[in-house]
Computed example of a mutant assay.
Amino acid sequence: MCFFMLRASSKIYCLVSFISVLILLWAFYLYSQDSVQNRIGLMCNDNTAAAMKTHTYVVEVKRCSNKDSWSVGNLLMPTGLTYSQPNTQRGRTDVNCVTNWNVPLVWEGTFDPLVIDAIYKKTDPRVGVMIFAVGKYTRFLKGFLETSEKYFLTGFRVTYYIFTDSEKDIPAVPLGEGRNITVLPVPAARRWQEVVFGRMKWATITIDKQIRNETDYLFLMDVDSLFYHRFGAESFSRLSAVLHRGYYKKTERVDFPYERRPESRAYIPFGEGDYYYTAAVLGGYLEDMYNLVRYCYEQSEEDASNNIEAVWQEESHLNKYLLYNKPTKVLSPEYLWSDYDRVPADIKVVRISQLKKNYKEVRPNGGH
């Protein structure tokens, strides 16, 4: 009897021990899985951080936090629109219409105005135009605004952000539906270089402080210009830059007027470069324009702290930025010509042109 009781107790003990071992093994398995997952997570985080640290750019870009930023999205068009059939065999053959990074280089004859405007009007973007009218440059406001209302993005919502040191000189110009003016006071300048550098500074501050929720697409333009022909939605892209009229044909990159002094943050070595872009007209999505203007502002400030000024001020920093952060659309010199220059055969249309003026008379430091 005792023998059988001992055998039964032994079996129960063994069974309990076996179950206990199984429970311990299961607990150890769960613990090890958590540890592995945690280690994997840490490794992923470490690898991501390492990748972010090693994935550096020649030009540092700081993003603005606007997760709901506007974009064109799908290229939707209203039904029933009548337009000419596109052709794969005909077009401009006298000029190049695409860059070597495969984005459009826009000329008259490379798009259908009816189609492109219809597509973008469907997205109904809020367009901002920043212009600086400081000192005697207020005299150019009336002509700029009047011709802009006739030719610039007609039928779109447009706000002109006018930076000026003389609010009383803002002209009363009739504006179309959905178009308005916002006046932003800035200090007077002693040197014209302060005005051009100030554009990037005040553009950065204004985007940060005021217009982030007012504008989807932003242009920077020079006020001493007149529009002569339609300037439409074909100019839209994430970042659109305009070829400088003086260097777009046969200029070798070694002869571009880039900043060549290594001491400047705008420095571009000989042997590098795509095009030379003007700073007098540029545009893009608000976030992309913010990145550009903030970069130019910060780099010029760093130059100033080192007692150096880039050869062409903010235009030098702009060209450095666009060399390493390619524009998503390049606009031909149709989008900024000059009344000083003869119009060549490849410029079929002058859309906007800078006016002739006496720089010594209009600039605060006599043009120097």
Rank of each mutant, 00 (worst) to 15 (best):
V196L: 12
I170E: 00
Y160F: 15
E214M: 14
I40Y: 06
V98Y: 06
D117W: 02
E314Q: 15
I268Q: 04
S69I: 14
N74H: 01
N96M: 09
D117M: 02
V183S: 02
C2A: 14
N38I: 03
G73Y: 04
H55E: 13
R139G: 01
W107A: 06
R261F: 11
R260V: 10
S10W: 13
V223W: 00
D288L: 08
A51F: 15
M200S: 14
A241S: 11
E309R: 11
D255W: 04
E234D: 09
P78K: 06
I119E: 00
Y258C: 05
T204R: 09
N180M: 11
P333R: 05
T251E: 09
Y275H: 13
E302W: 08
V61I: 15
D117P: 00
T93I: 09
I181Q: 00
V134N: 08
S338Y: 08
R253E: 02
R90L: 10
Y285P: 01
R190H: 09
L243H: 02
F132P: 04
E146R: 10
I347Q: 02
T328F: 08
K326M: 03
F256M: 07
F152K: 00
S316P: 04
H368F: 14
R351G: 06
D117N: 15
K142R: 10
P125H: 06
M52G: 01
Y297N: 14
R363S: 14
D255R: 09
T278V: 14
T159E: 07
T278S: 12
K209M: 13
F144R: 01
R245G: 00
F28N: 12
K136V: 10
A310E: 07
T154Q: 13
Y275G: 00
K122H: 01
T99H: 03
Y31W: 12
G91L: 09
E287L: 10
L75H: 00
H368M: 08
F236T: 02
T82G: 00
T93M: 02
W101S: 06
F140A: 07
Y160E: 02
R190V: 05
S20V: 13
S32C: 06
Y217W: 03
P187A: 12
A118K: 03
G367A: 08
